[in-house]
Structures are given as C-alpha cells and as structure tokens.
Computed example of a mutant assay.
Amino acid sequence: MTQHPIGIVGFSHVCIAVSDAEASLRFYRDVLGLDVFFDIELEGPPMEVVTGEAGARGRMIGGMLGGTVVELLEFTHRDFARRPENTLGYTNISLSVSDIDAAVAAITAAGLQPEQQPVDIGGVRMFFIRDPDGTPIEFVSYPNGERTSAQMWGYGN
C-alpha cells in the first residue's frame, strides 16, 4: 500500500444530504438496517462557519451500515428541490450483499420497487433502488464470495 504525505489513515464516513430526516431515517434504518448511534440537532456559529450561511441549522443522524458510518444530514434552514438524477459528484451508495436474489426479495417485501432485476456486469450482479430523495442505492453481489471490489480485483493480496 502506497504512503501519501497527507497521512490519510482510513475512510471516515459517507454523508448524505436529505430533505426529510424522518422519512430518510425510516428508509435507511428500517429498510436498509442503519444501526443509529447518534441523532443531533445542529445550529449556531459552528454551523454558520461550515455552511457560510447565517442562521444555519439542521439535524444529523449517524450510524453503521455494512461496516461504514453513514450520516444523514438535513439542513432545515434550506429549501432543497429534489433532483431526478445526479450527474456529477456523488452518484450512489453501493452495498455488498451475499445473496442478490434474497436482497431483491427483501426490498420488494418492504414495499419498494427495484429499478431493474439484477444484471450481471463483469461477473458482478447488481440492482438499484432509490431513497426518499431519489438518491440511488446500489446492491452488489461479487463472484467467488468476495465482499468488495478491492477483493474482486485482488487489491491488497
């Protein structure tokens, strides 16, 4: 593994801006299994400094999802319009599952509709759903029992 001068020691978390913290909490916790370990209100000078906006306030909910910390961030001082598709920057969260067909069945049983049946691309089976704000969530199943793309490509072996 290559050392870099910045000194990065690991990946910290994924933060997702949401329009409705309660609706997103129901989706990420109740459907995907987010194990929530904090739920805080944010306001005051630190929020104003970080956002560059007077009166900035919000709510942040964080937890573990598939071994990664996921934070849901609702800026309650802003009025966000939903976008049908992200075209630059963050595109989706990808969750690795051991059985893609069981994942489709569980998603369907939760009352959600996958965007497509699982497709195979280069030996990886995948499908997408969307969270309450339309953010794509990808489910992937790797060949030969691998759990990540790094394992599939032999990185770190």
Rank of each mutant, 00 (worst) to 15 (best):
M1D: 13
F11I: 12
F11V: 12
H13E: 15
H13M: 05
H13T: 02
H13A: 06
V14I: 14
C15V: 13
A17Y: 10
S19H: 11
S19K: 12
E22G: 04
E22C: 02
E22H: 04
S24W: 02
Y28I: 08
R29E: 08
E41T: 13
G44C: 02
V49C: 01
G52L: 02
G52I: 08
E53W: 02
A54F: 06
R57D: 00
G58A: 02
R59V: 06
G62M: 08
L65A: 05
L65P: 01
V69L: 11
L72G: 00
L73V: 13
T76C: 08
R78I: 01
D79N: 14
F80C: 01
F80Y: 15
F80K: 13
A81M: 11
R82T: 15
R83F: 13
N86L: 14
T87P: 03
T87K: 09
G89Y: 11
G89P: 00
G89N: 07
Y90N: 07
Y90D: 07
T91M: 13
N92Y: 12
N92T: 14
L95H: 10
V97T: 09
V97G: 03
D101I: 06
A109C: 04
Q113C: 12
P114L: 00
E115S: 05
Q117M: 12
Q117G: 11
Q117K: 13
Q117E: 15
V119N: 03
D120N: 14
D120T: 12
I121G: 07
R125E: 08
R125V: 02
F128V: 08
R130Y: 03
D131W: 06
P132A: 09
P132Y: 05
P136D: 13
I137N: 03
I137T: 03
F139L: 09
Y142L: 08
N144Q: 12
R147A: 15
A150E: 12
W153I: 10
G154N: 06
Y155L: 15
G156L: 09
